[in-house]
Each structure stands twice: as structure tokens, then as C-alpha cells.
Design a protein around this nucleic acid. Sequence first.
DNA 1: ATTAATACCTAACAAAATTAGGCATTAAAA
DNA 2: TTTTAATGCCTAATTTTGTTAGGTATTAAT
Lengths: 112, 112
Amino acid sequence: MEPNPVIKGSLTTIILKLLEQNSRMYGYEMTRAVREVTKDRMDITEAALYPALHKLVDEGLLETTSEVVEGRIRKYYSLTKKGKKESLIKINALKEALESLNLILNSNLGNA
Amino acid sequence: MEPNPVIKGSLTTIILKLLEQNSRMYGYEMTRAVREVTKDRMDITEAALYPALHKLVDEGLLETTSEVVEGRIRKYYSLTKKGKKESLIKINALKEALESLNLILNSNLGNA
DNA sequence: ATTAATACCTAACAAAATTAGGCATTAAAA
DNA sequence: TTTTAATGCCTAATTTTGTTAGGTATTAAT
């Protein structure tokens, strides 16, 4: 079973959600966390992830600190004050959008 | 309250779902149906809808018949045989993706 | 010595929606 | 009666976002 790709537009919100619950994480760790909670049913690719992280830093929602752990660089990301506000908004917006989508996918639309 | 935009990538599946339950619909009608079931919380724009419909026709998933009703043209779309098969697959794939997303948005990710 | 896992990254491209319109008819409101 | 809202179709340019396809480097296991 190939994992589902990320639903377009949701990656940024996924990142914010992860950081809302963990205070700091590094990129590679995020990819593992998503695989773990979704039991390999969703995969966020690094090629999408890193540019998304950099964009969030540019927008002032994330800040970074780097560390060397076991000879390898880890770049930790965490929410800024602005990022904390925005994450609440975006997580909520996505949840609402998912509820609407579920309504469409699970309702009888017109032929009742 | 501005309606949520369609979650990117889901529009095609929404169309297939609508036609799975209605046998035939025209574009404008689809926009109203989505607004109705989601109580105006989701809006599918015509600028996204019509190109998506044309693409589905090109791919052989939809077929069309046109009618003039009250002086205005209506272009009805319905699922082809191939479209019926594909709609089941795509609707299911989207549902699975939504479940994964819900797992991410509603779980405790690491700080439990 | 090679492979897998960890850990970061970019560039070219494609997919999909948004923004910003256009055109035409009918019904309602000013 | 002229303007606006609703119905109904559509396209073009741009932007957003992810995919494909790599690259680099270290550590641990085979």
C-alpha cells in the first residue's frame, strides 16, 4: 500500500500542529512523526517539507536553532509568538474545511 | 464568515461524488449543491470548476448533453462507465486521506 | 565495501487553484 | 426603465503547492 500523499495545502498546517504539541522539532523528525501517527498511511516528503519550513520562517511563524547531535546537524524549529496565534487559526480553518468535505463525501446529495 | 476554499486536490473527487448521487448535473448546479450541503461553509468557484469538468471529459470520466432551459444553456454532465469505476476509487482514496489528516489534527503527537 | 538510516538541501516541473475578468439571458428592484 | 442580482457558461495569467529527481554528508549495520 503506497501512502497517501499530503492533501495539497495542508502541509503548512500539519507543521504548525506538530510544533504546537512539541515546542521544538527538526525536519526529519516531523516526517517520522507523521508516518507514525498515521501508521504509514501518510507521508510528507522532505522535498515539500523543507521549502515549507523555510517559508514559515520567512513569514515569521517559526524560528530555528541548530545543534550537532551525534555528528549530524539538526535544525530545530519552534513557533514564534506570531506562529502560535496563526497555528490556532490555521488548524481550526483546516478542521472546518475537513468537516465540510466530510459532509459532501458522506451525505445524500439531492437524490434523497 | 467567508466560506472555506476547496481543499486543493479534492475538487475532482467532489465532482465525481456529486455525479455518483445525481446521475446528471450541470456546473452551476454543482456550486449550489456544495453550498447547500455545507451550509455555505464551502464554496467551489466556477473558475476552478469548469476547467476541472472539461478535464474529466477529456479523460473519459464524464460525458455531456446540452439543453436550453428558460432561454439559458445548461450543459449536463454525467459519469461514463469508466467514470463510475474511477469515482469509487477516488472517493475512497480521499476518505482515507482525510482520516489520516484527522489523526494528525486530533492526536497528541509526542507530548503525551 | 556497501547499504540503510539519519539529516539537511535545491532545481525543474506539474498540478491545481486563485484572481480577474468576459459574455449572455431572465427576473427583480430602484 | 435602467440597473442589479441571479442564472449559466467560459478563459487567461498568475500563484501556490507538491512531485520528481536529484545532491551532500555522517553513522551504523551488513
